[in-house]
Design a protein around this nucleic acid. Structure first.
Lengths: 221, 221
DNA sequence: ACTTCGGTTATGGCA
DNA sequence: TGCCATAGCCGAAGT
């Protein structure tokens, strides 16, 4: 990647419009064609464009103009002065390994329905990504009495998670007529407003302890 | 900011856990204490931490270990070799100016209820951020006949926007008893699924032309 | 190509 | 400070 320190001004046009007045910035141009213009605060660039944009350069009235063009977006940088310009070579084949994602939590919950429904539950089986007319629900458990017990899993549950549950209930009630149906919200963290809304709508929610995996190892012993 | 090209490996612990095997990366440390570890793809760092984390450095068994510590998060970088290490000074006082945001659209719609309700509307007045028990709704218009006509504004409306409308209707109906109430979804783009859900729930929606501001200038003339 | 959804979302605004 | 909603969200997976 190429990293440039420059006195510059930036205009962006595309999904919105932005202008950035003249000043010193760090410009990062990566090999995949993505570009970011950084100030001294935070990880997000002030301006940016995704992979695959085309970089052109020309001189107009004594200043250099860089243009970055994708189909529907456009950045123009007026370069008044370049202070520094370095090249850094970087490995891009090695992938980051994630652990403790929502995906992991889902898989774990599938094997631990007692976390959701209590030790005396009557769940026979369960599956992931059960299809409903409102989209796939994270987990679906099947109980001895024939009832369907859906579960929406989140790391952090906010208001929209409750809305999702409502949509699934709506869909299941109209499609699985005659069957007993409920949907439970399960998360590591449920915000106060979210808990309130869930209660209002009679949607049960369960908070999973942060150390769910450690708890697992203990219970195995 | 300081930018380092280094052969390194990274572990992150906090909201989740990640590991990144040894390889060449670009490490950006900003003055506000944020840090990002970049590969050659995209604008997002592979690993990162927000402003205010504390940087310590020590040597262990011949390799250098950098630690970045905030209250609840933690990054450890094992530095095998530093290829390059540059300092770039950057202006951080100049703000990015945005235009055409949802905020601008809201302000414009407040002055143009006909866009939402048609030329023969009976709106007397309107205000922004009208408080409901489900949070503030973007716009509230007051009609001649005393009815309340809420508007949720989005640039791009997805399913969650419909859910928001439902929440506001829920809240308004229970708190403004006796008054006629409706909520309209207004956006530059309403996705097909979103339109379907809105129709199902009898929530009207309006698509504003992309050139709404230009249209304004024309109609003024 | 487009849509949908998770994310260590980040970031700003407001209570 | 904590909580909520937006974002030019990004990026990935499925269709």
């Amino acid at each position: 990647m190429r990293i440039i320190s420059a006195d510059c001004e930036v205009t962006y046009t595309g999904r919105g419009n932005t202008t950035l007045a003249r000043g010193d910035r760090a410009i990062i141009i990566k090999n995949d064609g993505s570009i970011g213009i950084h100030n001294e605060v935070g990880n997000k660039p002030m301006n940016y464009m995704g992979k695959g944009c085309v970089h052109t350069e020309e001189e107009e009235d004594g200043v250099i103009v860089w243009r970055f063009d994708s189909k529907k977006e456009y950045i123009e940088i007026i370069i008044h002065e370049i202070h520094d310009d370095v090249q850094m070579d970087v490995d891009n084949s090695i992938k980051l390994v994630r652990d403790g994602t929502e995906n992991d939590l889902q898989a774990w919950l599938l094997d631990h329905p007692e976390t959701i429904f209590g030790e005396d539950h009557n769940i026979i089986s369960g599956e992931r990504e059960y299809q409903t007319s409102a989209g796939p629900i994270d987990l679906m458990f099947f109980a001895e009495d024939g009832s369907l017990r859906g579960v929406e899993v989140k790391r952090v549950a906010m208001l929209t998670a409750v809305d999702q549950c409502s949509r699934y209930i709506e869909a299941l009630k109209s499609n699985e007529k005659g069957l007993e149906v409920d949907v439970t919200l399960v998360a590591l963290d449920v915000r106060p407003n979210t808990a309130r809304l869930a209660s209002q709508r009679k949607i049960p929610f369960v908070i999973v302890p942060e150390d769910w995996r450690e708890g697992e190892e203990c219970s195995v012993e």
